[in-house]
Computed example of a mutant assay.
Amino acid sequence: MIELRQLRYLVAAAEAGSFSRAARNLNIKQPTLSRYILETEKRLGMVLFDRKTRGATLTANGATYLRVAKRIMKEWDELDAWVSATTNGYAGKLAVGFYTSLSAGNLRATLSEFGERHRDVKLRGFERDRDMLLAGIENGLLDIAIMIGDTPYPGLMSRSFWSERVLVAMPESHSLATRERIHWTDLTGERFLLTERDPGPETRNMLLGKLGMPGYSPEIDMDDIRRDTALSVIALGGHISIVAESALGIHVPGVVFREVHETNGHTRIGFSGYWREDNENPVLRRFLAFVTARYSMPSVPVPQPLSQQAGKEPS
């Protein structure tokens, strides 16, 4: 069996045209190099080099053998680089679930920048409601789900990622559309349209918390429609809606967006990531580290692969 090291010695000698020069390039002694090459020739049963006073040149058989050897070494180096990249999370796949808009906002920017920096990673996005995203994580179809809020779930790791401004979407003819600043109290008496799908139910809870009071509850219509369809309905008049700023990428003629303000600034809504504690995908660890650095957060504790955990001795 010819070892890869022996192939490297053969290639080095052929390229240098001299055993002594090749030995210097390899930082080994010439007798050592000569011995390895001679042992290789004996194992093969053929002479690869013509030894001359001024150096060593390849025989016809040697030229053929070295041509194949170079291809083997190149493929080996490529394979080794792929293994290293995959193990360290620079190559592979990452399945990301979400139910917010991917047309704008931090989710789009984060996935876009991560994809640019890690071109050997294949990103797959899945837009589903919260229950489907959680099921996807549990059954291993998703590596991570990014959702509004910070609700803990048994068996899942979670981390706050970023926040986005809360906006009110309204017809451009609405009386509030001329205002630069809108407060929650300005929305009392309005009729809201939300989707039955996520994040509609969470938005409904927000509205009830912000506007609900004894004797008054906001009028909220929940329809089984998509976000872009809801905005198209709003353009017709009669409704307004509450959205995260990622919805700014959905362009619907006749609809304008305005920030909703609290007494101490504009209202924001948080987004968190959820993943299985036993997920060993190196790309997931790379993604979590990327998000941590991008949003200047404290380091996220990422569990070690189970194969590494098994090798630890109990303390």
Rank of each mutant, 00 (worst) to 15 (best):
M1Q: 12
Q6V: 03
L7C: 08
R8V: 01
R8I: 01
L10E: 02
G17S: 06
G17W: 07
R21P: 00
R24T: 03
R24Q: 09
N25R: 15
N25D: 11
L26G: 07
N27E: 14
P31A: 06
S34L: 09
R35M: 13
L38A: 13
E39W: 01
T40K: 02
L44Y: 08
L44E: 02
F49H: 00
D50H: 15
R51Q: 14
T53V: 14
R54Y: 12
A60M: 02
N61Q: 15
I72L: 14
I72K: 06
I72H: 02
I72T: 12
E78N: 15
T87K: 13
A91D: 04
G92P: 10
G92T: 08
G97I: 04
Y99I: 00
T100I: 13
L102A: 14
L102F: 15
L102E: 09
A104I: 04
G105Q: 05
F114D: 10
R117V: 00
D120V: 00
K122C: 08
G125D: 00
E127N: 14
R128V: 01
D131W: 05
D131K: 12
D131G: 10
L134G: 04
L134D: 03
G136H: 05
G140N: 06
G140I: 11
L142D: 02
I144E: 02
I144F: 04
A145W: 06
M147G: 08
M147H: 09
I148V: 14
P152A: 14
P154W: 05
W162E: 04
W162L: 07
E164N: 06
L167F: 07
L167C: 01
P171F: 04
S173W: 00
H174S: 11
H174A: 12
L176P: 12
T178P: 00
E180Y: 05
E180C: 01
E180H: 11
R181G: 00
I182N: 05
H183M: 08
L187A: 05
T188S: 11
G189E: 06
R191S: 13
L194D: 01
R197F: 08
D198F: 05
D198T: 11
P199G: 11
G200R: 05
M206F: 07
L207N: 06
L211V: 06
M213R: 15
G215P: 06
P218N: 02
E219K: 11
D221T: 15
D223F: 09
R226A: 11
L231M: 13
A235Q: 01
L236H: 14
G237H: 08
G238K: 04
G238Q: 02
I240D: 00
S241I: 09
S241Y: 13
V243D: 04
S246R: 03
L248G: 02
I250H: 02
P253S: 11
G254P: 03
V256Q: 06
V260N: 08
H261N: 15
N264E: 14
N264A: 13
N264W: 12
G265L: 07
G265M: 06
H266K: 14
N279C: 07
E280P: 01
N281R: 06
P282F: 13
V283T: 03
V283K: 05
R285E: 10
F287T: 13
V291P: 07
T292R: 07
R294M: 12
R294W: 01
M297W: 05
M297C: 05
S307F: 13
S307M: 13
P314I: 12
